[in-house]
């Protein structure tokens, strides 16, 4: 029935146009742009071949950015996926009753808040002169621990990462809650009869049963870390120095502060390859599992 196939193209046309114009074409154009040198406000584009990519290899800021997104990914997986799973398992305990639902809602609230709002609030907390964090440390007699959390290159990236954890742990928790709801109850009932404690049940039933979601959550968290922009941009601007720079903030600053659009396009290509690799890894893992 070729008529139906023609129908399909008509129905899918708006989708194909929008995605073609705003997703796939830019992806290709980005590679093209990365071979040029040009600034945001000039018409001239100078062909420089692979120069931008050669520079990526020697740019120390790229190295910092990679280390930072690596840290971002590692800590996020640990806190969001690890702690998120624990929270989800705990909240699914029957004895909590209505409290389970209330807390679940509460823990998800940071996820729906705008990152700008959250970042501003945490800027107040981190302030070296009047901030709550230093004040609390002084109260409990840990004066030597007080510092300019966002203004010191040794702590800036961790302070930024902490804000992301506060916002996102609820998101991953929610993914796991949904997954846990899909686990057949009789598995737990059988374990109860066998006398297995809650910890044993967590490791022997919950974790294996949500394995797919573990992979998904890890991939979501890692790709999120590779492309993270708003948190460092708003909280530190990538500083002090380049100490809290990420791939996306380095790209943004190259494009719109240092007048190097071509170089920014090259950084974008790196981000694409990195996120693609992680996503393909996910598909592979799922492919093997089935």
């Amino acid at each position: 029935m070729p008529a139906r196939a023609l129908d399909l193209w008509l129905y899918a046309a708006p989708f194909l146009i929008v995605v073609g114009v705003f997703v796939f074409y830019p992806l290709a154009a980005n590679v093209w742009f990365s071979f040029y040198s040009f600034s945001a406000f000039s018409q001239e584009m100078k062909l420089v071949g692979l120069e931008n990519y050669r520079r990526l290899g020697t740019d120390p800021v790229m190295l910092t950015a990679f280390i930072n997104v690596g840290l971002y990914a590692a800590i996020s997986v640990l806190v969001q996926v690890g702690f998120g799973l624990v929270l989800a398992a705990v909240l699914s305990q029957a004895f909590l009753g209505r409290w389970g639902g209330v807390l679940r809602t509460l823990f998800f609230v940071p996820v729906v808040m705008s990152i700008t709002v959250i970042a501003f609030v945490f800027t107040f907390f981190y302030d070296p002169m009047t901030g709550l964090l230093n004040m609390m440390l002084e109260e409990v007699g840990m004066r030597s621990w007080t510092r300019a959390w966002l203004g010191q290159s040794s702590t800036a990236i961790y302070a930024v990462i902490a804000v992301s954890q506060w916002q996102s742990v609820g998101y991953v928790m929610m993914l796991f809650i949904v997954a846990i709801q899909g686990i057949p109850r009789d598995l737990y009932e059988a374990a109860d009869l066998d006398g297995a404690g809650p910890v044993a049940q967590f490791f022997h039933i919950t974790v294996p049963q949500v394995r797919d979601m573990l992979v998904v959550a890890t991939v979501v968290t890692v790709t999120g870390s590779l492309t993270v922009f708003s948190e460092p941009y708003i909280l530190t601007g990538g500083g002090p120095g380049h100490s809290s720079t990420t791939l996306a903030t380095h790209m943004y600053r190259s494009a719109f502060f240092r007048d190097e659009m071509g170089y920014a396009a090259a950084i974008a290509s790196v981000i694409f390859v990195a996120t693609m690799a992680v996503s393909l890894l996910q598909l592979r893992i799922f492919g093997k599992a089935r």
Binding site: P240, G241, R258, E260
Partner: peptide, 18 residues
């Protein structure tokens, strides 16, 4: 802008002895 950026970012690190 590129030179200024290198200067300013560098001096921020100088301020903390990095």
């Amino acid at each position: 802008a590129q030179v200024a950026d290198a200067y300013m970012k560098g001096v921020q690190l100088l301020l903390e002895g990095q």
